[in-house]
């Protein structure tokens, strides 16, 4: 199992480089398909079966087909010159620094060893699945699969339609706005 995780992580990292380094747009798209497939494998191994299915259907299915369709429709040329100059280098250093800082900061809140995890809750909402007294240094033991005892889809749906109902409904509004925007942008007669 661990070997599978390492292989999927390595393939995801390599194919993500392919997205950026390919000159042809279609190769970038195909690399992204591989990256997304490997990330979905990671989701499956991380006990997120529902997200695995969603990732395959929405990303590898819908989004990437849309990308490939647009690439076939527009047939963009390969980039003749890479667009890097000093601003890109400065931006890259800044992004790498911020990323490292964020992950160091995130790692500070969580300590782990072979026995379990200890998470610092920053703004402590103690209303999650792990019922118990509300102390800021709750220890989450590992491996505890009680969260997914009823099945992953059922557990996720239970949270999604109770605790997170309002964000879920707002996403429907977002999708409606996106559909209206896409129809408006691509209709005939918009040309100046």
């Amino acid at each position: 199992m661990n070997v599978l995780v390492v292989v999927a992580m390595a393939l995801a990292a390599i194919s993500s480089l392919g997205v950026v380094l390919s000159r042809q747009t279609i190769y970038s798209a195909l690399s992204l398909v591989v990256t997304i497939a490997m990330i979905s494998v990671l989701f499956l191994l991380l006990n997120a079966q529902f997200l695995f299915a969603v990732q395959i259907i929405i990303y590898a299915g819908a989004v990437m087909v849309l990308f490939v369709f647009i690439i076939a429709l527009l047939s963009p040329d390969a980039e003749d010159r890479p667009g890097r100059d000093w601003r890109a280098v400065v931006g890259l250093i800044a992004v790498a620094a911020v990323t490292i800082l964020v992950f160091v900061a995130a790692g500070n809140g969580v300590t782990y060893n072979s026995k379990g995890f200890r998470a610092t809750q920053l703004l402590g909402s103690c209303t999650s699945l792990n019922a118990g007294p509300c102390d800021p240094y709750r220890t989450f033991s590992y491996p505890v699969d009680a969260t997914n005892a009823a099945g992953n889809v059922q557990t996720v749906a239970g949270q999604l339609f109770t605790t997170f109902l309002l964000p879920f409904e707002i996403t429907s509004l977002l999708l409606l706005v996106a559909v209206i925007g896409a129809v408006y942008l691509t209709r005939r007669g918009v040309e100046r």
Binding site: L51, V144, V156, T171
Partner: peptide, 21 residues
């Protein structure tokens, strides 16, 4: 996964929806 909570999955689901839009 490692904090034994499904909330991460729910937020990832929201992120996927936003990405699709």
């Amino acid at each position: 996964r490692f904090l034994n909570s499904v909330e991460g999955q729910i937020f990832a689901f929201m992120v996927i929806i936003v990405a699709a839009a």
